[in-house]
Nucleic acid binder design. Structure first.
Length: 576
RNA sequence: CGGGACGUGGCUCAGCCUGGUAGAGCGCUUGGUUUGGGACCAAGAUGUCGCAGGUUCAAAUCCUGUCGUCCCGACCA
């Protein structure tokens, strides 16, 4: 490809509405342009890089035994209603109406479609296991698109769905995808790691997310360097001891706390009740039902855990007005000792189990109880792990201090079980003629997001530094004189032909620009290796070879092609 | 949806407080000089100052509303 014939609108200045570095580089290197919030046009360089990522994924999916398909983007809503996700997806599901006012959904993911296919077409145990995948556009009505391609309304995703006849089979399918994912991200030049994850509305009971460490990520990951434990903070647990038991008074004792409405205020003079001896009482509305949640005063409720444990599809904190109506007191004086309506569930964090001599609100403005025992004085409906892990807490597996870092989620694997196969009737007949639901798994990779994650991880002060596996072109030939009969241009053409014939992807910068402009542009766009052809080096019978990630070297003209080919092959080998 | 910021040529921004002829740099066009790290000189083109109302002799500037963008939170590949 000739630079002058393609379209690479590089930007010298940083666009005002791009905050994070990878988003700025995406725009500055001329990979994409925004149409409007969350919607981007892929320009030639961006599309080539995106296609590279998609093809790496395809190769690894095929290698893992998955088979490629393509499912409709426009889906009938009745299958969404059948799976129960029409409700669960809520506003994230884009809906459109046709001329008959019938409602359709724009594909955010395709469990319903593939399960319907399998239900209709496959019925014998002999036909399984099967794993169907596709690489296609997905739509989500994001509350807030941001960070360029990271969270967009429309994005490219690889989604795969496995069907097995047994739980062990499903586990094996899961493992295959897990391993394929590790290879995919490594081949993209990414340092990815897997963490235990919450399943959210996709469902199932076992799940890992693949994360790219990055300060601009939207996830907090808890990890242990000693034993490799790693989990999304929405799921992570630690090995903290339960609250120590103490001598306990005969009964809860009410005392006046005028104006005290925070844990912190109660921990100070004159009360001096440390936060770890207080019970924090939170009220949520989960699927329109009020629920009381108790965590220790120095702990933070983890809403993802709350959602997962209660199975709620929607929850929110109550309003102050609702609290007064429910418990008779304003926030700051709430507790679960007295005046709790019998219909309201009380969920307590495991860390409070056995705790006594605790202090909590009295459901009366300006009063608290002390000498409260969780077991004796509070009717707990259910105990769960509901707290958020904090940095430095001991690892539950090995006791070493846990760390927390930000990360970008690029992939997610789920063991779904029969969540979709049962309602959508995807069953098989076993050897005995018995009908059972298929055991499913689903596996997603955000392709566009992965592309941006590569940029987020591979850059320097001059621009993108593509791994050869993802680069739009592997080689950039830069003649400094472009007159057709010049020695530089003739040699450039010759090299172009040789390298292309050797199977490399090459761009020839034939623009009549000053050297500085061409060098800066090639570095900004980030081609892995550049061949510079100018009068100075040609006079010595040499060309200049500049890998993007290392120093410039002079090479004899006759060795140029071989050197470049060897370099690219070596880089490819490094990525596996 | 809640909290914050911002909308002025293709891009980055100044001007607004204190109303009075719409600016700079980059980019673009033409000519010339340059030619190994984002050149220089000259001449040009490009704006309903987001939109709609209002105040005023006069609004980019003040007021009201509205739309859009970005940042923080809930959502997720």
């Amino acid at each position: 490809m000739r630079w002058s014939k393609t379209f690479i609108p590089t930007l010298k200045e940083v666009p005002a509405d791009a905050e994070i570095l990878s988003h700025q580089l995406l725009l500055r290197a001329g990979l994409v342009r925004k149409l409007t919030g969350g919607l981007y046009t892929f320009l030639p360089m961006g599309l080539r890089a995106l296609t590279k990522v998609a093809n790496i994924i395809r190769e690894e999916m095929d290698r893992a035994g998955a088979i490629e398909t393509s499912m409709p983007l426009l889906q009938p809503v009745d299958i969404w209603q059948a799976s129960g996700r029409y409700e669960a997806m809520r506003d994230a599901l884009y809906k459109v109406k046709d001329r008959a006012q019938k409602e359709w959904a724009l594909c955010p993911t395709a469990e319903e479609v593939i399960t319907t296919l399998v239900a209709n077409e496959l019925s014998s145990y002999k036909q399984f296991p099967k794993n169907f995948y596709q690489v296609g556009t997905k739509f989500r009505d994001e509350i807030r698109p941001r960070f360029g391609l990271m969270r967009a309304k429309e994005f490219l995703m690889k989604d795969a769905y496995s069907f097995d006849t047994t739980d062990e089979g499903a586990m094996a399918s899961y493992r295959k995808m897990y391993d394929a994912y590790s290879r995919i991200f490594a081949r993209c030049g990414l340092r990815a790691f897997a963490v235990e994850a919450d399943t959210g509305i996709i469902g199932g009971n076992y799940s890992h997310e693949f994360m790219i460490p990055a300060e601009t990520g939207e996830n907090d990951v808890v990890y242990c360097e000693a034993c490799n434990y790693a989990a999304n903070i929405e799921k992570a647990t630690s090995g903290l001891p339960q609250t120590a038991a103490r001598e306990l008074g005969a009964a809860p004792e009410k005392f006046a706390t005028p104006g005290v409405v925070t844990i912190e205020a109660l921990s100070k003079e004159p009360y001096k009740v440390p936060a770890n001896r207080q019970i924090k009482t939170l009220i949520y509305i989960a699927d329109s039902q009020p629920v009381i949640v108790l965590v220790r005063g120095d702990d933070q409720l983890n809403e993802a855990k709350f959602m997962a444990k209660t199975g709620a599809i929607e929850s929110r904190p109550v309003t102050p007005e609702e609290i007064v109506a429910l418990l008779g007191a304003k926030p700051g004086s709430l507790g679960a000792v007295v005046n709790v309506p019998a219909t309201v569930k009380v969920l307590a964090d495991e860390r409070l189990r056995g705790a006594n001599d605790m202090t909590t609100g009295a459901n009366e403005d300006g009063f608290h109880f002390r000498c409260v025992s969780m077991e004796r004085d509070i009717k707990v409906t259910a105990w769960f792990d509901l707290r958020t892990v904090k940095v430095g807490e001991p690892c539950a597996k090995c006791g070493k201090p846990l760390k927390i870092r930000r990360a970008i989620e690029v992939g997610h694997v789920f063991k779904l079980g029969t969540k979709y196969s049962v309602p959508l009737n995807a069953t098989f007949l076993d050897e005995a003629g018995q009908r059972s639901p298929l055991v499913m798994g689903c596996y997603g990779i955000g392709v566009t997001r992965t592309l941006q994650a590569v940029i987020e991880q591979c850059f320097d002060k001059d621009g993108i530094v593509w791994p050869v596996s993802v680069a739009p072109y592997q080689v950039c030939i830069t003649p400094l004189i472009v007159a057709p009969e010049s020695e530089a241009m003739k040699l450039a053409e010759k090299l172009y032909t040789e390298l292309t014939a050797a199977g490399l992807e090459v761009i020839l910068d034939d623009r009549d620009e000053r050297p500085g402009v061409k060098f800066k542009d090639s570095e900004l766009v980030g081609f892995p290796i550049r061949v510079g052809l100018g009068e100075k080096s040609l006079a010595k019978g040499e060309v200049e070879i500049k890998p993007r990630n290392s120093a410039i070297q002079s090479v004899k003209i006759e060795d140029a092609a071989a050197t470049v080919i060897a370099w690219v092959k070596a880089e490819q080998a490094k990525l596996g």
